[in-house]
Amino acid sequence: MKNFSNRYIFIYISVLVLVVAVLLSVAAVSLKPLQKENREKEKIAQILQAAGYTDIQGDILVKYREVAEVINIPQEGSKDSLSLIKIKNQKDGSYNYVISLEGKGLWGPLWGYICIGEDGNTVKGAVFAHKGETPGLGAEIEKPKFANTFIGKMLFDENGEFVSVKVVKGGVANSTINPIHGVDAISGGTVTSNGVDKMLYNCLSKYVPFFQFLKQEPTADLDNVNSEIEEVSENNINE
C-alpha cells in the first residue's frame, strides 16, 4: 500500500470538498426555480381543496386565478397587512375566505388553510399539512378524515365571543365544550393535535375584526372593507 504524507491528505480532502461543494451549489441553484414552482402549485392545490374544489380539470393555476383573489387588510399599529384569499365556493357559489395557518407540531412546522364562510363564522373546509409528524399518529392531521371534521364548526359562540375551533383530547363528546366549537383530537397524536389547536387560535384571532365585520354585513362590498373594519374594531374597543 502506498504511503501518503499528511500534507497530501490535507490537500486531497480540501480539494475534494471544494469540488463537491461547487457541484452541489450548481445543482441546487439550477433546480431551484422548478422546486419553487412545485411548492407554489402544492400550496394552491391546498387552498383550492380547503374551498371545496376536489376534482380540478386542467391547469390549477388557471383555475385559481379564475376563482380566487388575494385581499390585504392593513393592521393597526403594524406595517404588515393581514392577507387572506377570497374564493368562490365550488359547492354553493358563495364567497368564502381562505386563511393560511402556521404553527408547530411535535417534530416540526405545521401549516394549513381554513376556509371561512361569508358569515365570518362557519368553517367551510380545512386542509392541514406537516413537515415531519409521526406517521400513523400526528401525521393523520393531513388526512381528509381529520380535516373534514372541521366543516360546519363555528368560530364565535352565541354571545359573539371568539372561541376558535378546539381540538379536544379524549373527544368532544366527553368534554364540556360545545360540539359546534370542537373536533376530536387524534389518538396518540396529542402534541400535534395541541399544535393544530394553538395554530388555529393564534392565526384566526388576528382576523377577528374582519370576521365581526363580515357578520354584520355578509354581502358588503369589499372594496372599502379596510376603513369599515377599522370602524368596527374601534366600536369594539369603545364597548
Binding site: 486531497y12 475534494l16 463537491v20 445543482a27 441546487a28 422548478l34 422546486q35
Partner: peptide, 27 residues
C-alpha cells in the same frame, strides 16, 4: 485515495450524489 481517510472520501462522494438525486426528485 489515501487509505487512512478513505471512508471520509467515500461518504463525501455518496452524500453529494444523494443530495443531487434528492434535488432532482424535488424538481
Amino acid at each position: 485515495i489515501p487509505p487512512r481517510i478513505r471512508i471520509i472520501v467515500q461518504l463525501i462522494i455518496v452524500a453529494a450524489l444523494v443530495i443531487v438525486v434528492d434535488l432532482v426528485l424535488q424538481a
